Measured scan of single mutants.
Amino acid sequence: TIDDAFRAIERAIQAENEGRYREALKHFLDGGEMIVTAAEKEASQKVRNLLLHKGKEVLEWAEHLAEWILE
């Protein structure tokens, strides 16, 4: 659900702030994927587009974090 997705993102932010970057990455990926999944089930085109945009933002952040971890 969207609530689960945002809880995962909150955990990711907390982990990132505490320097637990790999854990943060996992939570960002989980949250982003949950948002995209919820968007695919959404009946309203406007809400679907907003959710897809937010999911994409979260997944892009996860990608940047992963690249930073690997440096």
Rank of each mutant, 00 (worst) to 15 (best):
A8V: 12
E67L: 11
F6K: 04
H64T: 08
G32E: 03
F28V: 03
E60A: 13
E16Y: 15
A24Y: 07
E33V: 12
V58N: 00
F28Y: 14
I35M: 14
H53Y: 08
H64E: 08
E40A: 14
A12F: 04
A66H: 04
K41G: 10
W61M: 05
L25Q: 02
E18A: 10
A12D: 00
T37H: 12
H53D: 09
A24M: 04
V47C: 13
A5P: 02
K54H: 06
D3M: 14
M34W: 09
T1N: 09
A15P: 02
E57K: 13
L50A: 10
I35A: 02
A43N: 10
E57H: 11
A24P: 01
R7I: 07
G31W: 10
E63Y: 14
I35F: 15
L50Y: 13
I9C: 06
N49A: 05
A66N: 06
V47H: 04
K54L: 15
E60K: 14
D30E: 14
E33T: 14
K26S: 05
Y21H: 04
V58A: 08
E67K: 13
L70Q: 12
E33S: 12
L50F: 10
R48A: 03
A12T: 00
R7T: 05
Q45Y: 09
E57L: 14
Q14P: 00
R20I: 02
Q14I: 11
K26I: 08
I13K: 06
A66S: 06
L50M: 12
A39H: 02
D4A: 09
F28D: 00
A43M: 12
A15E: 05
A43Q: 12
L29T: 06
E71L: 11
R48I: 05
R20C: 09
H53I: 14
A5L: 07
Y21I: 05
K46F: 13
T37E: 12
E71V: 09
V58W: 13
A5K: 00
A24W: 05
T37V: 13
K54A: 10
E57V: 12
T37I: 11
W68E: 01
I9V: 06
T37C: 12
R20A: 03
F6N: 04
I35H: 03
E63L: 14
E57M: 15
E42D: 03
A38P: 02
L70C: 14
V47L: 13
E71T: 12
Y21F: 09
G32P: 01
H64I: 10
V58P: 00
G19A: 03
W61S: 01
L51N: 00
D3N: 11
N17V: 12
I2A: 04
G31A: 15
K54S: 04
R11K: 12
A12K: 00
R11I: 06
W68V: 05
A24V: 03
L59T: 03
N17K: 14
A43H: 12
H53W: 12
Q45I: 13
N17E: 08
G32S: 11
N17R: 14
E23Y: 03
G31R: 04
A39E: 02
E42Q: 08
E67Q: 13
A12L: 05
K26L: 08
E23M: 05
A5I: 12
L59M: 10
A8P: 00
Y21G: 01
I9M: 03
K54F: 15
A5M: 06
A12S: 01
D3L: 14
V36K: 12
I13M: 05
E18K: 06
T37Y: 09
A8M: 15
H53M: 15
H53Q: 14
G32H: 15
N49E: 13
E10P: 00
A15T: 02
D30K: 14
E57Y: 08
A38L: 15
Q45R: 09
A15F: 10
A62H: 00
Y21T: 02
E10G: 12
K26P: 00
E71I: 09
V36Q: 07
K46N: 08
E57R: 13
E57G: 04
L65G: 00
E71R: 10
V58S: 01
E40T: 14
E18Y: 05
E23F: 02
H53F: 10
L59S: 03
K41S: 09
R22C: 15
V47P: 01
A38W: 08
A12M: 05
E18Q: 09
V36N: 08
I9W: 05
T1M: 12
A43T: 13
E63H: 14
E16R: 12
R48W: 08
S44L: 10
A5S: 01
V36G: 07
G19D: 02
D30T: 13
A8R: 10
G55T: 04
A15I: 03
S44G: 05
A62C: 04
K54G: 03
E40K: 14
K56I: 07
V36L: 15
F6V: 06
K41W: 08
F28M: 05
D30I: 15
E10T: 11
H53S: 13
N49K: 06
I2E: 02
A5Q: 02
G55F: 14
E42S: 11
V58D: 00
A43R: 11
Y21S: 00
V36I: 15
R7F: 05
I35V: 03
G19F: 04
E18H: 06
N49Q: 10
E18F: 06
E63V: 13
T37M: 12
L29M: 09
L70S: 10
A66Q: 08
A38N: 02
E67W: 12
Y21A: 01
S44R: 08
T1C: 10
T37P: 01
L65I: 07
A15W: 04
L29C: 10
W68M: 07
I13P: 00
Q45M: 11
K56F: 07
V47Y: 09
N17T: 10
I13N: 02
Q14T: 09
I9Y: 02
R7V: 06
V47F: 12
E16F: 15
D4Y: 07
E10D: 08
E10Y: 10
L52T: 04
G31I: 14
E42W: 13
D3V: 13
F28P: 00
A62Q: 02
E10M: 14
R7E: 06
I69W: 04
W68N: 03
H64K: 14
